[in-house]
Amino acid sequence: MIIGAGPAGLVLGNALRQAGVSCLIVERHSRSHIEQQVRAGITDHCSRLILERLGLAAGLLAHGQIQETCEFRAGSERVIVAYAQLNGGIGHRVYSQHLLVRDLVEAFLAGGGELLFETTAETITVDGETSATVTLSAGPRRVSCDVVACADGSHSIGHKHMPTTPEQRRYPYRWLTLLADVPTPSPRLVYVLHPDGFAGEMPRNPVQSRFYLQYGTGEDPHAWTDEQIWQRLRDRMPDIAPGRVRQRSTLAMSTRTHLPMQHGPIHLLGDAAHALPPTGGKGMNLAIADADTLASAIIASSHDGGKRLAAYSDDRLTDVRRAVGFSDWLLRLVNTPLHMSEKDIMADYRTRQAKLMELSDPAGLATWFAHAYARTSEQTTLPVRRSTVSHRSARAGG
């Protein structure tokens, strides 16, 4: 049983169907809803390889825009990081998540997969270490299964069955996000550091971009007109041209990670396992990797006695930890601590400007960033840079 027809659930379902493993996907929303809900669209190298191997990448390869650089701005300083040049040619493809979901749904149904829309998983009863019964709101009311894969988002029904409480971190940052038609989208993803708060642009296609605007706790962006929003964006990004706003929403930045990601027959994947801020575009890509790992483990369980399935959470730990760490680093770099005094805000801004300049050094932070941003096999933890003063002090003390 797979609960949730987002990228994680659909990649898992397609992989199992191709291997001849019986599975049922249930999704609480309608098909039109999940295929039209515009969401994040950065697909990294690892996800592309998984989708290609499963024969699910046709739309991505045909229509996804290749991204190999990103840009950081702070005042008059601009740093363009050509990360693909620094990591061996590995970039991203921009392909809206709803388009990928549409492709995955079509592939699953065309292959004879069973997918119930507008159906909610109401309860999960654990019958043993390797069996459970799921009660549904429609269709077959009770379904017995060996594995329950919960890919149903950050409020997953599987959470109550996990043995530990999640690791959580709430940040003092809030964003207004816009999807807008614009005459000339940026050729690359842009991050703007500004004393008044972060601003950013993520190009979606040749005529649309998603914009991000940090706001303070005492502000109500829902009360702002489109003109007021564009003015605030232009104050931080003077070169943007306003356009028609298609969507707007707000986000409070937080991280929540469930470790372990499994207990008995219940396995978490995607946002159900790890909900991350949108910085760095890690969420959907981690979800696809979760699905690939879990699918391989389920398929192998017929001949390995369930050993790989039991190790699912451990196998995903390093990738998840790295993504959480990178998202935290990038979030702190670009956002302004608006809860501080004006003096402290400016001091923090100058510190972040200095950190930003380190990204222009290919021999140092830029190469680490290039691998971590693209999630290559060579990504490492954040390098520790010693200041000249500390280095001299150490030598003098020796």
Rank of each mutant, 00 (worst) to 15 (best):
P185W: 06
Q228L: 01
A223G: 08
A223N: 07
T217N: 06
H222A: 09
G153Q: 10
S154M: 12
G218T: 13
V207R: 13
N205C: 11
I157C: 09
H161I: 10
R170F: 15
T164P: 00
D220R: 10
L178N: 11
Q208C: 08
P221Y: 00
G158S: 07
P172N: 05
I157Y: 10
E201S: 13
P183K: 02
F211R: 00
A180V: 14
L213N: 09
F198H: 07
H155M: 13
Q214V: 01
G218S: 10
G218N: 13
V182N: 01
V192W: 06
E167W: 15
M162H: 11
L193C: 10
P206C: 06
Y171T: 09
P187L: 05
E201C: 10
G158H: 12
L193V: 08
Q214R: 00
C150V: 02
D220I: 02
D196A: 14
P166C: 02
P221V: 09
Y173W: 12
L193M: 13
T164G: 00
A151R: 07
P172W: 07
K160T: 14
G218Y: 06
W224R: 02
P195C: 07
V192Y: 04
L178G: 07
L189K: 05
S154T: 15
H194F: 09
P163V: 06
R169Q: 15
P195S: 04
F211T: 01
P187C: 05
M162R: 13
G153K: 14
V207D: 04
I157W: 12
R210A: 08
S156R: 13
E167S: 11
T184S: 09
Q228W: 01
D152V: 10
P183N: 06
D181E: 15
T217Q: 10
T217D: 11
Y191I: 03
H161T: 11
S186H: 10
S154K: 15
M162P: 13
H159Q: 05
E167Q: 12
V182A: 00
L193G: 06
E219D: 09
C150S: 07
F211S: 00
V147A: 03
G216N: 05
D220G: 01
F198A: 01
H222W: 14
S209F: 01
G218H: 15
D181N: 14
R188Y: 11
